[in-house]
Each structure stands twice: as C-alpha cells, then as structure tokens.
Computed example of a mutant assay.
Amino acid sequence: MLYRIIDAGDVPLLIRAFMDSYELVAPVECDQGHIFDTIDDPNDVVLDYSTTIASPKKYFLPPREILFKFDVAQNDVDAYELDVKPRVLFGVHPCDMNAIEKLDSVFLEGPYPDPYYRARREATLIVGVGCTPSQSCFCHRMDADEAPAGYDLFLQDLGDRFWVSISSVAAAEVLEESTTLREATDEDRAAFAAATRRRNEAFSSDIPFVQDVAMLMDTYHSDPFWAELGSRCLNCTACASVCPTCMCFDIVDELAFDGKTGERVREWDCCTNPQFATVAGGHNFRPSERERVRHRMYHKLNGFKEKHGSMLCVGCGRCVDACKTGINPIEVLKFFDEKTRGAHDAQQGKGATNGE
C-alpha cells in the first residue's frame, strides 16, 4: 500500500483524468439529498456528503436486467451481449465498499461465479472517500467503518489537502499523470489521525455496542419482540431498495406480443415481500410480517456470518431513514442491549443476595 498527499485543488483534475478513459459515477446533489449518478462535469461531484439515498449496488446488480433472449417457435436461446463500459465509482464511503466486498463473496466466489456481475465488477475502479457519520450511521457497530481493502484509491480530506491510499496500478497511473504527488510528512500523518478521531467521536452514543449479536439472534428467536416489530411492517420493501447488501432477485420470462419470442429477466426482490416465500401449490413459508421481518434481520446479523464470516449489514443507516415505521437493525441492537443488561443486572442481584 502506498500513501501520498495531493492538494485539494487537484481533485477535479483527477476526476477529469478518469473521465477521459472511463464513465465516471459519483455522488451528486438532488432534491432529496444525494445520489450516485453519471458525471459530465467534475464540479457536480460532492465529496462531503453524509450518505446517499441509495447505494452504488445498482452498478453491479441492476434492478432489472436481461439475462438472455429466446425463441419459442425455433426452440432457440440467444446469449445476451452485455454492453459493459469501463467505469469509475468515485467518492464511495467505507460502508459501501464493505458492502461491495460482501456482494463479491456471493456473486464471485464459489464454483459458479455470476458472469453478469463479474463483467461489471471487473470493469470498475473504486475511489473511496472518508466520511463523517450522520445520526443514522452505525457502521462502527458492524465493523464496516473502515475499508482496509476493496478500493483502488482512497481519499481522506485533511482540509487543504487529501491523504491518498493507493492500491492499484491502473488508478495510480491516472493519479500520477493528473496531480502533483508528494510524500506524507509527520504533520500529514498527525492530521490523518485527527480526522480519524473526529469521525469516531461523531457516531451517535445512543447506538449500543452489543457482543455476540449472531448468538443473540438464536437465543431470542421466539421472543415476542419480533411480533411487535413485524406488526409495523407495511410490506413496502423500501428497506431492500436502499440497502447496499440486499441481493435477492426473482427470475421471470417475459413473452413478446407474438407469443413466440421473449426475454428472461432478473429483477430485485425482497424477503419482506409477502409473496417472496410462496412456492408452487400456494404454500407460503413465511406468511406473516413477524416471520418476514425476523428472517431479514436473521440473515443480516446471523445467517450470512455463519457462511461468510461477517455480518451482512454494514450499518450505513439507509434503512433507518427509509422505513417509516422504525424497523431497522438499530432497534434490534437496542432490544439485545436491554435483554443482556437485564440478565446481567439479575445475575448481579442474585450474587449479592447469595453473598448476604
């Protein structure tokens, strides 16, 4: 890993240099906040944003994509040609970079990598940027507040300059050609440490630290808490729409009007969708909101970790803002905190009684 310093005024030059060879996607301001969008002017890029409304997941796993086309009359299938452009995702927060790493573990690892996801992923460079958490952020509780890997460049704002972490040759070449690099000094390193400290201190103190979350998901699997939490669910699936790690999808065949040709399409789906767990014959394995909400939280905080070694939630806080009835992992953490504190207090009281 290489570390260099560039002047703040060099950032637009870096963006412009990437735009010469890549499609550049970066956070821009919109009516509701900030979104990732394709950039035509470097001045449109906003790097000091809190959290975008939706994640950059759609650039690897689109909400809707054609997998292939078929001809029923000819009993023939035509492979669908992906039009994949070299792309740079610029200004990605650590939580979103961690989310992309988790998507990679699902779609790229194992015996059958997803060719559609892989084509987009391999054509994409990622430039990360440090951030200041909002009140909804809890990435520090999900071990996703830092991104030790998963980027080509990482920028940390130090005021009039940026600390740059370099981890790929392709990005390093563009950086060197477009900016004036210099070695980091002791003053720069101290400024970087101070920026890290300010970020850590900015997290909300109302979000509890809970140990062994995955184990607690099993311990309180039948608790009435899930019925209360599920009773609020509106089945709107807004949580999955904004989540950077939700990866469930449905496959549908769409026939043309002639009834002879069609397309096989992959579309986003969500486990809180009432029809998600419905199978042939009409049986629904999770018919109630209680079961669906619990399953979603279980997968985020337990099931994924059992298979891949880390929780699926990255604490970006988007679902906190998107859900109008307050269903989110923070509520689960607070519930576990209350339960474990109560158990600890009861044990302490029992010990004191026995001591008397």
Rank of each mutant, 00 (worst) to 15 (best):
residue 53 I to N: 02
residue 93 H to C: 13
residue 72 V to C: 02
residue 32 Q to A: 15
residue 64 R to L: 09
residue 12 P to M: 06
residue 55 S to V: 05
residue 25 V to S: 06
residue 19 M to K: 07
residue 39 I to Q: 05
residue 71 D to C: 05
residue 83 D to V: 09
residue 88 V to Q: 11
residue 92 V to I: 15
residue 77 V to G: 05
residue 26 A to S: 04
residue 59 Y to E: 02
residue 40 D to V: 12
residue 64 R to Q: 14
residue 42 P to F: 10
residue 93 H to N: 15
residue 43 N to A: 15
residue 35 I to R: 06
residue 18 F to K: 07
residue 79 A to D: 08
residue 21 S to M: 07
residue 49 Y to P: 07
residue 64 R to C: 12
residue 22 Y to F: 12
residue 37 D to C: 11
residue 66 I to K: 02
residue 71 D to G: 06
residue 23 E to T: 14
residue 52 T to L: 00
residue 43 N to S: 15
residue 66 I to N: 03
residue 46 V to T: 12
residue 52 T to N: 01
residue 18 F to W: 08
residue 52 T to K: 01
residue 80 Y to W: 14
residue 81 E to D: 07
residue 29 E to G: 14
residue 63 P to F: 02
residue 36 F to I: 02
residue 33 G to L: 04
residue 41 D to S: 08
residue 16 R to N: 10
residue 70 F to R: 05
residue 44 D to S: 15
residue 79 A to T: 07
residue 20 D to I: 03
residue 50 S to D: 13
residue 14 L to E: 10
residue 15 I to F: 01
residue 69 K to W: 00
residue 31 D to Q: 13
residue 36 F to H: 01
residue 88 V to R: 13
residue 85 K to D: 11
residue 40 D to I: 10
residue 57 K to R: 15
residue 71 D to H: 06
residue 39 I to S: 06
residue 53 I to K: 04
residue 81 E to F: 06
residue 72 V to R: 12
residue 38 T to Q: 14
residue 76 D to N: 14
residue 47 L to E: 01
residue 27 P to F: 03
residue 70 F to L: 02
residue 51 T to Q: 08
residue 36 F to K: 03
residue 85 K to Y: 13
residue 28 V to D: 03
residue 35 I to F: 02
residue 25 V to D: 02
residue 58 K to C: 12
residue 57 K to E: 09
residue 71 D to E: 03
residue 77 V to R: 11
residue 56 P to Y: 04
residue 79 A to I: 05
residue 61 L to W: 06
residue 18 F to H: 06
residue 65 E to D: 10
residue 58 K to T: 12
residue 33 G to F: 02
residue 25 V to L: 09
residue 36 F to R: 01
residue 67 L to N: 00
residue 67 L to G: 00
residue 42 P to C: 11
residue 11 V to K: 04
residue 32 Q to F: 11
residue 67 L to M: 03
residue 75 N to R: 15
residue 18 F to R: 06
residue 57 K to S: 11
residue 7 D to W: 13
residue 75 N to E: 05
residue 8 A to N: 03
residue 66 I to Q: 04
residue 54 A to R: 08
residue 38 T to A: 15
